[in-house]
């Protein structure tokens, strides 16, 4: 069986420009989408605690809308439907990468807001009380005390989100974004050699995720407060989110 595996083609695919460019594109798209999603999610999480009812309603509706509908549909609406609704989107700046960035950020922001909300809730209310007793403003307490402690709780589920998002970038192949999976499929179709071409793509995903895991464990240590930085922390109380349906 292995005799039919063309290792030459495998290496050629692995080192070919479309592959590494495609992988880089997937990584870029994941990174910028996650970064944007964290910003959206942070403010949505704060909004969920707002005393104003309308703010909470906006956050709720946003979370509901983007979690209840398929990511693929969101991507198609932003890429295909939006330019027909607003002519501003029917111009050259609106590239497939832009469309995917917007769609994935909005989608992921909804999930991140729940994760960040749980992270903020996990910080002992006594911390805020102590800050107020010192005369610190709400914003100072958030920035210096609550957010750093919430970050530690938020890192592991955010690592999961990165992985999910990386895999979701392959959806962007249908709006002609030339990411790694598109490159692999093109090569597979032209050579008719599926094992070699697809395995090469698989390897790229494995490498990217492995790099992320190293980064994540460094970050976790960075946000653990012991001078020895060895403290074990219990699994965070973050609601499990099923990724299968996305």
């Amino acid at each position: 069986m292995t005799a039919s595996f063309d290792s030459h083609l495998f290496w050629a695919a692995l080192t070919s420009e479309p592959y590494w460019r495609g992988a880089l594109l997937a990584l870029e798209l994941t990174a910028v989408s996650l970064a944007t999603a964290i910003v959206i999610g942070f403010f949505a999480a704060l909004g969920a605690f707002s005393p104003r009812r309308w703010v909470r309603s906006v956050v709720w509706t946003y979370n509901w809308l983007f979690r209840a509908t398929p990511t693929l549909l969101q991507l198609l609406i932003i890429w295909d439907a939006l330019p027909q609704l607003w002519s501003g989107f029917a111009s050259s700046w609106f590239t497939p990468f832009m469309a995917a960035w917007i769609a994935l950020s909005l989608n992921e922001g909804a999930y991140m807001s729940e994760i960040i909300r749980a992270g903020l809730l996990s910080v002992d209310p006594g911390q805020e009380l102590a800050g107020r007793a010192l005369g610190m403003s709400r914003r100072q307490i958030l920035r210096r005390v609550v957010v750093p402690q919430a970050v530690r709780i938020v890192i592991p589920p955010t690592g999961n989100e990165f992985i999910t998002l990386l895999k979701l970038t392959s959806l962007a192949s249908i709006i002609s974004l030339h990411e790694i999976l598109t490159s692999a499929q093109e090569l597979a179709v032209s050579t008719f050699k599926y094992p070699e071409t697809l395995l090469a793509a698989l390897l790229y995903y494995l490498v990217i995720v492995s790099m992320l895991m190293v980064l994540q464990s460094r970050l976790e240590r960075r946000f653990t407060w012991s001078s020895g930085r060895r403290r074990r922390i219990q699994a965070p109380a973050v609601p499990a989110i099923s990724h299968d349906a996305r």
Binding site: D124, Q127, A130, L134, G135, V145, W225
Partner: peptide, 17 residues
């Protein structure tokens, strides 16, 4: 702010500092 100091039963030191 800060003119009346408070000490709590559970200390409430900032855990990240």
């Amino acid at each position: 702010p800060g003119e009346v100091g408070m000490v709590f039963q559970r200390f409430n030191l900032f855990n990240n500092m």
